[in-house]
Nucleic acid binder design. Structure first.
Length: 443
DNA sequence: TCCGTCCCTG
DNA sequence: CAGGGACGGA
């Protein structure tokens, strides 16, 4: 791996570093359109400045005090940055990485920070500088790769523009989003370009940030308490169902004693999960396996009590959140169930069915097929005959109520719900097994 | 007031 | 499927 090109590019970055925010610096080495891409994200300018100050303060702190940067939790805890705007995360990441690189690089190039002090302090500083130098080299490489990627992506866009336009290439290519939407040109798959850009940039940024975080995390002791409480503590804006049995990330990658703004905020970590196609936590949370199990349990119980839920989800650590989530699941299951019942009974009415006796639900019924598709998508479980009976009773209740004109009453379904909630069936003991799902039941 | 449910929306 | 408002019962 050659560093010559990398160094050239970095020096150009460093020359402009004092004035321009970090995220714009590297873009200035790109075609103008790339730089303009930053325009929709003005917030990242502030973030960049703030981050640069934080990193510099960190370096000065480490050097002046002659101490490692370990363990200054109080100072770090005071540093917080609200990066909640998800649309800015890529730019925030970029700004963060580039500012780290620029700051370290500037300090390094200028011969380090203030000399003097005791011999002990000097040797520690030399050690610090040596470590920082190594980090710088690695990060230079990463940033260079990122720049290359951006160039490739953008040049690809530009080529496509040229070939598609067939006319003179614009003197001043505007930002990608705008350049793909010329007036009167129609919607020529701008979404594809935007998506490609987004994916490439996201993947590249993830790679860079990961490396940087790893480099810095190695300097830090592991946190005393891994933030594994996160999935159950913050459920907003994240899927409540987490994938289980995937490798847990080293805690220091999720949160370290690094100054707060540098730590990966949970939602960014979550994005990183998606970008990397991995889940970082196994946890106390409900998994797709639990969801599947719950759906199969619906064949037996439409209104499970919290006690029933606790009994049949014994591998789950129950708290208010988990309980309400499970209850919500069954509420959603019922909703779907009753919607289908109403739909099929109205259909039967319009098809000229005259009496409820004509309405039956068997395994061959279309209604059974729809229900099976919803609650037993993998079709690896046989619908219990009891559920077919309950479905038939419900269908007939709906048919009867509608044919009597009861649906004029806004609360006409409540009487049906009262009937159905008494039709609970015994859930097979196999569902009590905390691991896996019961084998197919053949009746 | 709390909790469960319904209902609507995204 | 999740979020959230409305509603009613305890």
């Amino acid at each position: 791996m050659s560093f010559s090109g990398t160094n050239l590019k970095l020096e150009r970055l460093e020359e402009q570093q004092p004035e321009a925010p970090g995220y714009q610096l590297s873009l200035q080495n790109q075609p103008r359109g790339c730089g303009d891409m930053a325009a929709p994200y003005p917030d990242s300018d502030l973030i960049s400045q703030w981050l640069r100050r934080s990193v510099k303060a960190k370096l000065v702190e480490a050097s002046d005090l002659g101490e490692s940067s370990q363990g200054d939790g109080e100072v770090q805890a005071k540093r917080g940055l609200d990066l909640e705007s998800a649309k800015d995360f890529v730019w925030a990441k970029r700004a963060r990485v580039e500012n780290i690189v620029c700051s370290i690089s500037s300090s390094y190039r200028d011969g380090g920070l203030e000399e003097g002090g005791s011999g002990y302090g000097r040797s520690r500083r030399a050690q610090e500088r040596s470590q920082l130098k190594q980090q710088l080299e690695k990060m230079r490489e990463q940033v260079f790769q990122l720049q290359e990627k951006l160039c490739q992506i953008y040049s690809g866009v530009a080529q496509e523009e040229r070939s598609n336009m067939g006319a003179a290439w614009s003197q001043e290519p505007s930002r990608v989003g705008a350049s793909t939407r010329h007036p009167g040109e129609g919607s020529r798959h701008p979404g594809t370009l935007a998506e490609a850009l987004k994916e490439e940039l996201g993947a590249a940024m993830t790679q860079v940030v990961d490396t940087v975080m790893q480099v810095f995390a190695r300097q830090q002791p592991p946190p005393e308490e891994p933030p594994c409480s996160y999935p159950s503590d913050q459920t907003e804006a994240l899927p409540l169902v987490v994938r289980k049995s995937l490798p847990r990330a080293p805690p220091e990658l999720v949160a370290s004693t690094f100054p707060q703004p540098m730590a990966v905020p949970p939602y960014l970590a979550a994005f990183k999960d998606r970008a990397a196609g991995e889940a970082y936590w196994e946890s106390e949370g409900l998994t797709p396996g639990h969801l599947k199990k719950a759906k199969l349990m619906f064949f037996y119980t439409r209104y499970p009590s919290s006690g029933t839920l606790k009994t049949y989800f014994s591998d789950v650590k129950f708290n208010r959140c988990i309980t309400s989530q499970l209850i919500k699941w069954f509420s959603n299951f019922r909703e779907f169930f009753y919607i289908q019942m109403e739909k099929f009974s109205r259909q039967a009415l319009s098809d000229g069915v005259l009496s409820v006796e004509m309405l039956t639900v068997t395994r061959d019924s279309e209604l059974a097929r729809v229900l099976n598709q919803h609650y037993n998508k993998a079709n690896d479980y046989e619908i219990p005959s009891k559920f077919l009976e309950v479905s038939q009773i419900t269908l007939r209740e709906f048919f009867s109520a509608i044919s009597r004109g009861c649906d004029a009453d806004p609360s006409w379904k409540k009487s049906i719900y009262k009937v159905i909630c008494k039709l609970e069936c015994d859930i097979p003991d196999a569902f009590k097994s905390p691991h896996g799902l019961p084998d197919t039941v053949h009746e």
